[in-house]
């Protein structure tokens, strides 16, 4: 559970800074306090019933509630003179991505970063760097760098592929691996295959609106 919160730390922070008006200097304190309260006292994951909404939604609801209490408490302390205002109270938050929902963006970034990190580790462990190289060259780099993917002919030359099916086979294997690992990563907080599908659909819909 601690690991799970750690992974989505950036998403929680982005949400607080951009949506809940918590200053950058306060955000770590709020997130750490929230994680501790949820992890040790309430066990959010155990309560995450798919029928009552997604884990992500549940997490945000709990965070919103915790932050409101935290801010109320903070304001009371300041009013009583027990606490100075934060140093960066007027500072501009970190530049936000051009989307209406910074939390979802950070969440998806975390999901995808974990997916490709694990995929790369699997490829190293299984001595299948050929799969990683095709995935990285043909899909990952073009996607992130917005440059054309190397052609099939280039792939064959670079990887020394001798049969027509090999490059196609490697790419299909790579995307299946990527698919499986992404679903595993989501499965660590989503309870079922249906819930994983819903989570992917939901994120895609969010980005279709924001893209």
């Amino acid at each position: 559970m601690e690991e799970l919160f750690k992974r989505y730390h950036r998403a929680l922070k982005a949400y607080l800074v951009r949506r809940r008006k918590v200053t950058p200097s306060e955000v770590d304190e709020v997130v750490d306090g929230f994680v501790a309260s949820q992890m040790w006292e309430r066990d959010l994951l155990a309560r995450a019933d798919p029928k009552k909404g997604r884990f992500r939604t549940l997490l945000l609801t709990a965070l919103r509630r915790y932050t409101a209490n935290w801010l109320r408490h903070r304001r009371a302390l300041r009013r009583s003179g027990g606490l100075p205002p934060p140093a960066d109270i007027h500072s501009t938050p970190v530049a936000a991505p051009p989307t209406r929902d910074a939390f979802e963006v950070e969440w998806a970034r975390s999901l995808l970063n974990q997916t490709i990190r694990r995929m790369h580790e699997h490829c190293i462990t299984d001595n299948r760097l050929d799969i990683w190289r095709v995935f990285e060259a043909r899909l990952l780099k073009p996607l992130l760098d917005q440059q054309p993917a190397p052609s099939y002919a280039d792939l064959c030359r670079e990887l020394g592929l001798k049969r027509a099916a090999q490059a196609s086979n490697l790419l299909t294997t790579a995307t299946r691996m990527y698919d499986r690992i992404l679903r595993n990563v989501i499965g660590e907080y989503a309870g079922s295959e249906e819930e994983i599908d819903r989570e992917i659909d939901d994120l895609m819909k969010t980005f279709e609106r924001g893209a």
Binding site: P97, P98, T99, V105, A108, R109, L112, N113, I116, R117, H120, E121, E136, L139, L140, K141, L143, L144, D145, T175, Y178, D179, L182, I200, L203, M204, T206, F207, E208, G210, A211
Partner: peptide, 21 residues
């Protein structure tokens, strides 16, 4: 694995990454 990741990816790239499936 640190060569490229999604830490600075915007909604368009994230959508494409999810559509890889």
């Amino acid at each position: 694995s640190k060569s490229r990741d999604f830490s600075n990816a915007g909604p368009t790239e994230l959508l494409k990454a999810l559509r890889l499936l």
